[in-house]
């Protein structure tokens, strides 16, 4: 078993909706009512145009593997080797994540492979969005 504990997020007023969504099994993004940009990570204004007229939207949960490393050394809460990935969501934004339900090898982890979101419960308050190969 992994030594230590995985670091967990501490939500702020600006990110509360994201973590509440994750707990309920929904991936939340934000979208600008003025310029239509969809963005992440959360903030109460649009990083594209500065407008405060933004809304929270549900993401499709579809993504593609954009890049990754496979950490070979132990880290708190993790058993090596484990992949640290960045995925590109169907809506455009990218996010860091782990890839689950798949060997943590270069052979299994092919860039641009189709992925879908899954939520992994950590505590009563926090579920982390992770991604698994699509259709599995």
């Amino acid at each position: 078993m992994a030594e230590g504990k995985r670091p967990l997020p501490k939500p702020t007023p600006e990110t509360q909706h994201f973590w509440e969504g994750a707990k309920a099994g929904q991936l939340k993004l934000q979208s600008c009512n003025e310029c239509s940009k969809t963005y992440f990570p959360p903030r109460p204004f649009c990083p594209g145009c500065g407008s405060r007229d933004v809304k929270v939207v549900n993401a499709s949960g579809k993504a593609k593997l954009h890049s990754y490393v496979i950490h070979a050394r132990p880290a708190p809460g993790f058993d090596p080797p484990y992949a640290i990935a960045v995925v590109e969501l169907a809506e455009g934004p990218r996010m860091m994540t782990n890839i689950v339900g798949c060997p943590q090898t270069p052979e299994a982890l092919q860039l641009d492979m189709d992925l879908e979101v899954t939520f992994v419960k950590q505590t009563d308050d926090i579920a982390l969005p992770m991604f698994k190969p699509a259709g599995t």
Partner: peptide, 10 residues
């Protein structure tokens, strides 16, 4: 801390 650290960056 919220959107990268939980995924095991070290």
């Amino acid at each position: 801390g919220q959107f990268e650290a939980p995924y095991g960056v070290f």
